[in-house]
Amino acid sequence: MSNAKNNLAGINGLDTGRKPTIWEKLSNEKYFKWVLLAPLIIVLLIFMFYPLIYCIYNSFMEGGLGAESVFVGLKNYRYMMRDSSFWIPFGRTLEALVVCIVAELLIGMGIALLWNRDFKGQNIFRGIILFPLLVAPLIMSLVWNFLLEYNIGFVNQLLTAIGIGKVEWWSSNIALFTIAGITVWKWFPFSAAVLLAGLKSLPKDVFEASRVDGASGWFTFRKLTLPMLSPLIIIIVLLRTMWLIRLFDPLYGTTRGAANTELLDWMVYRTSFVYFDVGYGSTLAIMSLYITIIIAAIMYRQLIRALKSG
């Protein structure tokens, strides 16, 4: 890479017989890369640092939109530490996160193992399970809300027909799990597709050898398949954590934070846009940002590693 860079620079240096025009200067190696990057940097500076600085500034202030803001130091942060209406949604978010990721990985792995062979119509089936991935989460939450309606919902009618009886999907005991279930429906194809791609790329001879040696299926899976797939599993877990931590659309389409389902982002939304508490809303936003930055840092390393090895 560095060698190639020198080559490029050397060739560029050849045609410097006369004074270069501005256009030639800009297309010179040294500036060209920054010229290409400039629009992105400008956009990031405006759109990333403005909200960041705004939130940090306001997290030290008190007062709504109309009222005069007063500097209150760390009061908002201290309040947050003791605020159960922050910690309960936070705990729920983690709960939903673990439930979803575990369920998605298990189902995804099951499908990947099941479909990791040649069968009739395999390409069609593998294509069909990708459908939920790109569908609007808000629309799907509305559809699921309808499907899970107590009387007219199809799911309860089906359950009645097979003798299980109706379930109150949106009662406060299980509503959170219902929302998790909707999310799992949308995202298990992601785990399945990634793991299936992973299984297909594994070297065949190793598995051949282990079969010849008489290793059981479970042993092969645990000692060979799982370790080889672990980089992919890490990527799935990180990406899903990143997306799940800001579950918003499924809440809007269903319970809207009622029935013990208020999650972290819903709480931030409510504080900022329903009560218009700019100071505390900013504090919560900053907290939410801290959590994501930690995940993002781990995530980035994994993504770059995967990109460079691939």
Binding site: F47, P51, F248, L289, A296
Partner: peptide
């Protein structure tokens, strides 16, 4: 990865 709500 910036939470959308933070920027909102």
């Amino acid at each position: 990865m910036f939470p959308a709500v933070v920027a909102a």
